[in-house]
């Protein structure tokens, strides 16, 4: 054993990557239990909602209901994985396993930890959307070549819901309180963001309300990629909304979690 006089500070991108790498190693250490649910979940949705409920629904704006639904669940699977990872997962790392305390003993700043985590959860979102894409492609529901870009929307969904969920986690001091967020915020969002039925069916007030929800915008982006006739310039606004949302939420998450991590 000897000590070293040169101790370079890793560059910021190396620091973010190292945090990403930590989460990746832990996630893949339980590979089978983590890799299969993303494929099963869309199957359940497609069979349960698509075939069951869908048989009552003729077509939505010229789209088959299964295709309509596929566009929605491609992003909601990313949303839910992000929400669970950055609520229960983050809380356990923060309060119970004290993983962040260990990380803060190494050359990482709180913001490195937060951004590394957001990027990892974005990667998870990518993977979950990809899993849905594979399933719906196998069933021949999605055929458009552009749909190959959907996992990119999954990534975007992952990062914005990671950031939002981290803000929630920074405020929560009792793990049971996540129920308010998951059933009180995300479940309603699932129904009022155009996932299972089009927004146009909602009263005007609720339609405006839906525009505030981040999920609405990512659903719109994903759906346009699997049925290109929906592509239009307004999607740029959806994308910009997501970027602004991400910047604001990640800033709030860093401020809030800094208070929790630094005495």
């Amino acid at each position: 054993m000897s000590y070293s006089n040169s101790a370079p500070i890793p560059s910021w991108w190396k620091r973010l990557y190292s945090v990403w790498y930590r989460h990746f190693r832990v996630y893949t250490s339980n590979f089978y239990s983590n890799a299969f649910p993303p494929f099963f979940e869309p199957l359940i949705f497609l069979v349960g909602l698509g075939l069951g409920l869908g048989s009552f629904i003729p077509e939505i704006n010229g789209m088959g209901y299964l295709l309509f639904l596929a566009g929605g669940i491609m992003v909601t699977s990313a949303m839910y994985t992000a929400a669970f990872e950055c609520t229960y997962g983050t809380y356990i790392r923060l309060v119970i396993d004290r993983i962040y305390d260990g990380m803060l003993g190494s050359p990482l700043l709180v913001r490195d930890i937060i951004w590394g985590e957001i990027l990892f959860v974005g990667t998870k979102g990518f993977f979950f959307s990809l899993a849905v894409l594979i399933v719906v492609s196998c069933f021949g529901i999605v055929k458009e070549p552009l749909s190959i870009l959907v996992p990119g929307v999954g990534f975007l969904t992952g990062v914005i819901f990671a950031a939002l969920s981290l803000v929630i986690t920074s405020l929560v001091h009792n793990i049971n309180h996540f129920n308010f967020y998951l059933t009180g915020c995300l479940s309603p969002m699932f129904f009022f963001a155009g996932v299972v039925f089009p927004l146009a069916n909602l009263p005007l007030g609720l339609q405006y309300f839906a525009e505030i929800l981040p999920l609405t915008h990512v659903v719109r982006l994903a759906r346009a990629l699997i049925s290109p006739e929906l592509l239009n310039f307004n999607l740029v606004y959806d994308f910009l909304y997501c970027l602004v949302f991400l910047v604001v939420m990640s800033w709030l998450a860093i401020k809030g979690l800094e208070k929790r991590m630094i005495d």
């Binding site: 500070i9 250490s29 396993d97 260990g102 050359p107 990482l108 700043l109």
Partner: peptide
């Protein structure tokens, strides 16, 4: 802080290893 943590080694009171790994 980053500079200090680059040349220091820190052993916290409570072990916080990654139990899954």
């Amino acid at each position: 802080a980053l500079g200090i943590k680059s040349f220091a080694g820190i052993v916290p009171q409570q072990d916080n290893l990654d139990s899954e790994l």
